[in-house]
């Protein structure tokens, strides 16, 4: 078989990237919040696929377990419990529609153009994967970054307490 122009890695990248952009577009365009939540889950899973393509396997799995399996479940629970319905149509300033969307495109295009400059400072990757990334991450988490790591546990504790206090029913 002749060498094709598109290597398998590039093909996988375009498939996953297309899926991510479709999911993000669907998040913007859907009317019902549950459909937006499902589109966001699609984005997260395709991003996890991209992380796997880059060799960051531990981050990919943590993304699926924590983001896709916990945070988005929380979103879906809240949408179900609050019985969020479809968005009603309210008046919108025409300026927002006619000036806002082009400005958003301009923001994205300028960010992309910055990246495409030849001396953008991003070196070409020397290897496809970082070998033993999981071991290096774990040793870094417990050696150099142990202080932020323990602080995140306090952060989560504070968040739990805050969420409990906020969601309490008023005491009659």
């Amino acid at each position: 078989m002749a060498e094709s122009l598109v290597s398998p890695a590039l093909l996988t990248f375009f498939v996953l990237a297309g899926l991510a952009v479709l999911g993000a577009g669907s998040l913007v365009l859907q009317k019902h919040p549950i459909h937006s939540a499902l589109s966001l889950i699609v984005v997260m899973v395709s991003l996890a696929g991209l992380y796997l393509l880059m060799g960051a396997e531990f981050v990919a799995m943590v993304q699926i377990i924590v983001y896709g399996g916990a945070i988005m479940v929380l979103f879906i629970f809240v949408i179900m419990l609050l019985n969020a319905g479809e968005e009603e149509h309210t008046d919108f300033s025409q300026l927002a529609k006619f000036a806002g969307l082009p400005l958003a495109f301009a923001l994205t295009a300028s960010l992309a153009a910055l990246v495409f400059k030849p001396d953008a400072g991003v070196p070409a990757a020397t290897q496809a994967f970082i070998p033993k990334a999981t071991e290096q991450i774990s040793s870094m988490l417990f050696k150099e970054f142990v202080y932020p790591f323990e602080l995140t546990s306090f952060l989560i504790l504070v968040a739990i307490m805050g969420a409990l206090v906020l969601a309490q029913r008023e005491k009659k």
Partner: peptide, 8 residues
């Protein structure tokens, strides 16, 4: 791709 997702 990151810029596009951020923009969206």
């Amino acid at each position: 791709l990151s810029a596009v997702l951020f923009g969206l």
